[in-house]
Design a protein around this nucleic acid. Structure first.
Lengths: 270, 270
DNA sequence: CGGGCGTTTGAATCAAATCAATTGGAGTGG
DNA sequence: CCACTCCAATTGATTTGATTCAAACGCCCG
């Protein structure tokens, strides 16, 4: 597949940095399992809290509406109450790239804080409601309510961690697996928001999905066909924009299968 | 090359969201040129401020030392005073991916805030000094000093914006261009920190560079050879770990050339 | 009903991965 | 100091996964 290359040097863990705070190292192995101290709030609770504390201006948007665009002066962060959105990056030479997909509970606009202007476009892909949080107002409210600041930092942290995962997918997974992983992530995102995950509508064209995943629309189409052929997904009668995912686990398994070197045909029978 | 596909829907800018704050849209075109309201502080000033306000614990690290690793309980952010560091992501199935490179003035550990545990490894690639900022201490100090909070948010914002740029590079640039763009970014990072940029040492092996850029070590090697052949870079006498970059602009130009469809051999002569 | 997308699928091509062989330092120890 | 090993890097030959080019289909909408 792509690069399974080693990236490690001598893995010598440094002397645990004095003892500024307790908390045992908790090795990597132990980490993957449970989500014990995960984000303490549900998305609904978070939105309620933000609504109560900030009484943000609410705006209804429709497919194609631009929430903000690259170069525009930064002034506010946005919180999505409903709808589906894409984040599009544009380079000086006309390259264009979907770098993120956002839905209910997600924040928009972090990229604008540092340079005082947004560095990408945020576009609605559907009807939805956006809450406007002027940055100054937010900072003032955070001074009163520490939990609000925590919320904000967690959202930014999540975004950073997720962006890195995206980069890893693009760099280490073959096309088929990337599409499967994309569907898995999408299904999980819907599940997190209490939406049905066994069947849903892709709100993007093959071209948009391909752009997001770093491949052509034909490759996306072929990957989806293969997934359907392998019974990992299924299309509804109503066109190929709706997918049925009986079992999300099957998608992860498919990714694994893509990574498996050579199947070593029937090892027991050999 | 890769996907030059369109990712846009109907580009209808929404009704500028009332008037919560002034600040004209300032169209994208106008944005790229100047850096007028950019980060108001130099890296040195920022470090001084952090040092004065927080008097952080300082730690000397050596190549291979692990600052923190995936799964470890989150407790502190880190600021780099010197040295070179890499951020390595690891997936459940053994895939390993360099997702970031950090140097003086950069922060480490943002990824740990949301899940209360780090989600990647931070590894020193060289001798350096790291400042430890316990997150609780930082929050307390931010309550006193709003400018400190601004600093923090700007750092997170920059990281988000940069991660998106990385994703775009990987998705839209062919291998040669990606290597050139990597060198360009590296040179600019060094320039920002007042280090010489006409000649420097790559602190990574071809395998590490390739892993970071999503290609094999052979491809990196070929790309570098090509860049040298085209006189965009040069190697020093002292081995091929040191590169000479007479003109950073030449690297951007090279990227452009890679993107140009077909040169249309000598259009005037045709 | 016809035009315009978005999608699917096949065939040809190409860029990058893989496989393989060689070179070149850096470090070690006789 | 030189022989030796080890590892990084280079370069060539070959394979392959994905793009490109092309044709055809299905669907929505006026």
């Amino acid at each position: 597949m792509l690069n399974t290359a080693t990236a490690t040097a001598s893995p010598r863990v440094i002397s645990k940095f004095g003892s500024t705070f307790s908390g045992a190292p908790a090795a990597r192995a132990a980490a993957n399992g449970t989500t014990e101290a995960d984000s303490p709030r549900s998305i609904a609770d978070t939105l309620k809290m933000l609504s109560d504390l900030l009484a943000p201006q609410r705006r209804v948007v429709h497919a194609g509406d631009v929430i903000y665009q690259s170069g525009e002066r930064f002034g506010a962060l946005y919180i999505l109450n409903s709808g589906f959105f894409k984040i599009v990056n544009q380079s000086a030479d006309g390259r264009e790239q979907v770098v993120g997909l956002k839905l209910r509970g997600d924040w928009l606009g972090f990229d604008g804080i540092a340079r005082r202007q947004y560095s990408c476009d945020a576009v609605a892909m559907d009807t939805g409601e956006v809450w406007v949080i002027p940055y100054g107002t937010l900072m003032a409210a955070c001074a009163e309510q520490a939990s609000l600041l925590t919320l904000l930092h967690e959202a930014m942290s999540r975004e950073i961690a997720h962006d890195r995962d995206s980069l890893m997918s693009v760099c280490t997974l073959p096309a088929d697996a990337r599409v499967a992983d994309f569907l898995r992530y999408w299904a999980e995102s819907l599940a997190d928001r209490g939406m049905r995950t066994d069947q849903f509508t892709l709100r993007m064209t093959r071209a948009e999905i391909g752009n997001y995943l770093g491949m052509t629309l034909e490759t996306v189409s072929r990957a989806l066909s293969k997934l359907a052929r392998d019974k990992v997904i299924a299309f509804t009668e109503k066109g190929r924009r709706d997918v049925k995912i009986a079992d999300v686990k099957a998608l992860s398994d498919f990714v694994q299968r893509c990574l498996a070197p050579t199947p070593t045909p029937v090892p027991t029978l050999q």
